[in-house]
Amino acid sequence: MAYGSKLTTDMKRSDCIKALYPELADRLVVTIMGACAQELYDLGDRDNFFYLQHAMGLASSIGLGLASSLPNQKVVVLDGDGSVLMNLGTLATLARYGPPNLTHIIFDNGSLLSTGGFASHTTSGITDLAAIARGAGCPKVFAADNNYQFLEACAEAFDSNEMCTIVAKVEAVGPDHFGMDIALPENAFRLKRYIKSITNHESRITH
C-alpha cells in the first residue's frame, strides 16, 4: 500500500528537523534529496548545509569523508530508508571506521515518498534498519518512535564520543511544494569555502 500508512508512529520528519535546526548551526550537515532536503531548506538555508539531490545512498559516505578528514568538526547526516537501502554496505563501512564526530540520522518513513510514495522494504517493520546497523557493528544505535525518544537520542548522540546512528520512524508525509534556489555546483563550492573559512580560523586559534 502506498504512503506506508501502516507505520505506528505519529512523528513527522519536518518536526524532527525543526527541533534539530538550532543544533545544526555549527555542524556540517549532509541531507538526502527530496522531502528531507526541502524541509531543511525551508527552515533557512545555511552555508554549512549540503543537499545531495541525487546519488541516493551516498549521503552517509559523504559524511564519512567529511568526518574523517575533519576530526574537529561535527558532522550530521540526514538520511532516509530508501537511500540507506540502496547502499546498505555503508553501515558496515561506517561501523569499521566509526568517526566519533559523525551522527547518522535515518528518517524511516517506510516509503519512497519523493518518487510516488511506494512502500519501501521497511514498511510495517518488515526490515529493521536499527537492527541492521547494530548487526553491521555501528557502535551506538538508537531507535526512536516518538519525538521525545528522538530528541533524547539526538542529545545523547551530539554529546557522545562515539559515532551514533539514530533510526527515527516517521510518517510518510512531505512538503506541499518543491523548489530550492541553489545550483548543485554552487552548493559544493559554498560548502568547500565554508569549511576552508572555519578550518583557517581554527588553525589561527591553535597556533
Binding site: V30, F50, A55, G57, L58, A59, S60, S61, I62, G63, L64, G65, L66, A67, S68, S69, L70, N87, G89, T90, A92, T93, R96, Y97, A188, L191, K192, I195
Partner: peptide
C-alpha cells in the same frame, strides 16, 4: 578507508575534497 562497494568511495572522495 576500505569500502564495501566502490560507489561508496565516490561519496567519501567528495567529503574529503570538500574538506
Amino acid at each position: 578507508i576500505e569500502v564495501a562497494k566502490e560507489e561508496e568511495a565516490i561519496g567519501i572522495a567528495a567529503g574529503a575534497y570538500l574538506a
